[in-house]
Design a protein around this nucleic acid. Sequence first.
RNA 1: GGAGAGGUGGCAGAGUGGUCGAAUGCGCCGGACUCGAAAUCCGGUUUACGGUUCUUCCGUAACGUGGGUUCGAAUCCCACCCUCUCCGCCA
Length: 424
Amino acid sequence: MLDPALLRTQLDDTARRLAARGFALQTSVLNGWESERKKVQTETQELQNLRNTRSKAIGIAKARGEETAALMAEVAGLGDRLKANEQRLADIQAKMAEIALGIPNLPAADVPEGADETGNVEADRWGTPRTFDFAVRDHVELGAREGMLDAEAGARLSGARFTVLRGGIARLHRALAQFMLDLHTREHGYVECNVPLLVNPEAMQGTGQLPKFEEDLFQVPFGEGLRYLIPTAEVALTNLVREQILEAGALPLRMTAHTPCFRAEAGSGGRDLRGMIRQHQFEKVELVSIVRPGDSAAEHERMTRCAEVVLEKLGLPYRRMLLCAGDMGFAAAKTYDLEVWLPSQNTYREISSCSDCTDFQARRMQARWRNQDTGKPELVHTLNGSGVAVGRALVAVMENYQNRDGSITVPDVLRPYLDGCERV
RNA sequence: GGAGAGGUGGCAGAGUGGUCGAAUGCGCCGGACUCGAAAUCCGGUUUACGGUUCUUCCGUAACGUGGGUUCGAAUCCCACCCUCUCCGCCA
C-alpha cells in the first residue's frame, strides 16, 4: 500500500509515476472520495465530541445527586444521528481502503521504463554456456530414463502441471534444496525457518497477493473460514513481522525457508506445458530481509548476490536482468531477475526474482521498527528473493550437466549431499 | 474431540456502568544528588487517524475481534478468535 498522504497531497505526481508501470490511477474518483471523507469525518467527530461532553456532564450531575432529565433530553436523538454518520464514514473508508489496496508500488527512480519483458535491461552476465559435441536433450527426455521425472504419473494423481520425481533425480532435487539452505544459513547470515504452508487471508493481503490476485492462489476451506496455500515462502516469512515493532538492534532480519509453493497458474494456459518449468506445485528456497528504510537498496544488491552465488557454485551460467517498470510484480519498487542458461531452449530462463518492496508490504502489515533517533515506530522495508527456485535449478543442472549417454554429472558442491555420487 | 481458566499499556497487574487512555509496581528516557556509580528523589514514557496558527495545540478512536444494550461500556449481553491447564486421540 502506498502512503495515503501521497494520494492526498501529491495525487497527480503519484499517478504519473504509476503510469510508468502501466497502472492508471483514477485521480478524480479518489479526489471525490477524499473530499467526502473529510466532510463526513469532521461531522462525525464533532458529534462524538458532543456526546462525550454531554455524557460526562450527566455523570457529574448524578454524582452530585442533581436532576439529569434536562441533560438527558438534550442528547435525545443524538445517538441515531451519530450512528448514521459513523456508518457513512466506515463505508467511505472501506471504499478508499479497497482502492488503496489495489494500487501497486511505485517504481524506484532507477527502474527503466518499459511495458513488458522486452524493456528489461541486462545488468550482468556470468559464465559461458557449454558447447556440446552431441545433440542436447531437454530435461524431459533426460528424466524419462527409469521414470525418474514422470509427468504422466503426476497427471494421474493430480492433473496437468504436477510431476513425480524418483530415484536419482529425486535425490538431486533434495540435494539442491539442502545445498541452498546450507549456503544461505552458513555463509550468508540467514536464519533457517520452517513455516506454515497454509496462511490466512490477512497474510495474503499483507504481502500483496490479495485482494487482486486471488485467482492465482489455491484456497482451502477451513472451519467457517478459509486458508490459502502459499505461492511462495515470501508470504509466510515476511508476515512474521506483521503488527510487530522491532527493536533497531534486530535489523537487518534475514530469514530463509525451503518450502513447496502452490500456484494456480491462472492465465498461463499453454505456456511451458512441457516439463517442470511451470508447475502448480514446486519447491523454492526463499530469502527475506527486513531492514531499516535507508538500507533496502544496499540489501537488495546483497540479496541478489546471495542468489547469484548459488548459481555460481553450481556452475550454471546466468544473467542478471533489471526489470522495467511494466514487468515488475505488484509489491516491488525494484526487481532483479536471474535467468539461468537452458541448453535445450538455447536461451536464459528465469530462476530467481529479487525484489525491494520498500515500505509497501510493511504498511499493509503494519510492520515497524523503533527508530532510536525519533523514538517513534516507523515502517520497515521488506525484500524477498528466490535463492533459488529448486525445480528450475534441477532442470538447469540436468540440462547443463548432461552427458552423451543421457546420464547427468553431479555438480561438485552437491556430491556431499549424495554420498559422493558423481553421476545419476 | 471433552472439561475448565483466561485475554487490559514494553512487562507484571488493579479496575465489574459515569470526570478511566486507564491505579500501582517493574522496565525505559531525562533531571537532581555523587569524583563516578548504586541507592534515593523529581519529571516523563502507547498507538492510529483527523484538524491545525503544521517540529505547536485541539479533537476522535483503540482495554483479543466483531456486534448489541445504554445519555454513557475496559466494566453488562451475544457471537467469534486466540492462549493456558487437564483428559482423549495422534505423526
